[in-house]
Simulated scan of single mutants.
Amino acid sequence: MGPITGLSTIATTLLWTSVVLGVVVAGLLLAVVLPTLTRTREERRRQHLSIPAYYRLTPAH
Rank of each mutant, 00 (worst) to 15 (best):
T13W: 03
L14T: 15
S8L: 07
A31D: 07
G22V: 04
R44Y: 06
V23T: 03
V32F: 13
T9C: 03
E42V: 05
R45V: 05
L7Q: 11
H48F: 11
P59E: 14
A53R: 10
I51C: 06
S8A: 07
V23K: 01
T40A: 05
A60P: 02
L28N: 06
R39H: 10
L49C: 06
L34Q: 12
S8T: 08
M1R: 03
R41V: 07
V24D: 05
L57P: 00
E43F: 10
S8W: 00
W16N: 06
I10W: 10
T5L: 15
R41Q: 05
T5H: 13
L57K: 09
T40C: 01
L15G: 02
G22I: 04
H48D: 11
L30H: 01
G27I: 01
V24P: 01
I51E: 06
I4K: 11
R41M: 04
S18T: 14
V23M: 03
V19A: 07
L37K: 12
H48P: 00
R45H: 04
G27K: 00
P3Q: 10
Q47H: 09
R44S: 01
L28G: 07
R56N: 14
G6T: 11
Y55L: 15
A53M: 04
H48R: 15
I4P: 03
P3W: 05
G22Y: 09
L34A: 11
T13Y: 04
V19L: 14
T38W: 14
G22K: 04
M1H: 05
V33T: 15
V23W: 02
E42G: 04
